Simulated assay, not measured.
Amino acid sequence: MTLYNKLKRLIGRALFHYEMLKDKDYVIIALSGGEDSLVLAYFLKDWQKKMRIDCKFLAVHLDMGFPKDENKYQEGVKELEEFCKSLEIDFYFSKTDCGIQAIEAFEKDISAPCFVCSWHRRKYLFKLAQERGANKLAFGHHLDDAIITFFINMFYHGELSTILPLQEMFKGKLYIIRPLILVEKDLISRFVKKMNWKVLENPCPFSKETKRKEIENLLNTCIYPLNPKIKRNIATAIFNPKIEYLPRKVW
């Protein structure tokens, strides 16, 4: 099976099983410019054509406000717009201060910068969805993200939970969809390399020092090398929990 076919099959399985795309949907695609978001946009459009669904896409790229090489960044944004144009997907760009607020929170030791940045980013996207009349918001979270989130929540929040493939928001007025939820990160990176797509560099100064990165490194260096089946078994456990074999709350 080719890399393209494998990706399309896994994404299609998620789309169909969780009923992520329907006629008359208006989907906002969170397009950071990273590998995940490029693959997300490409295969959403690919599957829309195959399924012959009458739905609308709007790829949204937000300037988070982090310090960066502005000229290089603007060139990257133009390339993103051209990428969307080639897919016949409308492109929307907007400047925000999410990154600035994250830096301020870090400097004042008020809250974790990633939490602040993510919260404001989602708030902006939720508001945009309401203004545009969109009913779906697509994120490029993949299988590795689901596994890492599971361990973060268990280690640091004392709960067994992770990101959902389909998540209802605001009493059904908006749904978050994650079409890449069954896809491993390695497949995404290999496909982007094969397609020779240019990836927009992440200017976030905290991207390499997060709890998420710590857990990712722990899994890749200490856990997965123990046995080639471990990663797949963790994923299977997350998607097939045996609730009846978990004890009831004590504390």
Rank of each mutant, 00 (worst) to 15 (best):
D46M: 04
K211G: 06
F66R: 11
T149R: 01
L7P: 07
A235Y: 11
I89W: 08
E75T: 03
G65I: 00
D54T: 12
D109N: 12
R52L: 08
V77S: 09
Q167M: 11
W119Q: 15
V199F: 01
C222S: 12
I147W: 05
F57G: 12
K6M: 08
N202T: 05
Y26S: 06
A30W: 03
M64F: 03
K8T: 01
P179M: 02
L180R: 07
V199I: 06
E184Y: 10
M64L: 14
L182G: 03
D144H: 03
R190V: 00
E79L: 12
Q101T: 09
C222V: 04
L40T: 11
S32N: 14
K45D: 10
F16Y: 10
E244S: 10
Y224D: 06
R132K: 15
G133V: 02
I53M: 15
H120G: 11
L80C: 07
A112Q: 15
W119C: 11
L166T: 00
D97M: 10
C55H: 13
A59F: 08
L10D: 08
V192H: 01
L44K: 06
E131S: 13
L164M: 11
F16I: 13
G12R: 07
F139A: 09
K127L: 10
F151L: 01
A112K: 14
H17L: 12
I100P: 06
I243M: 14
D46V: 03
E82F: 01
D25G: 01
N71G: 14
E104L: 04
R13N: 14
M169E: 14
M1P: 13
K229D: 14
E107M: 00
I89D: 10
A41Y: 05
P228N: 04
D36G: 00
M1I: 07
Q167F: 07
S86L: 03
V39T: 02
K193A: 04
S37K: 02
L137N: 08
T96L: 10
K108I: 01
F83H: 01
A14G: 04
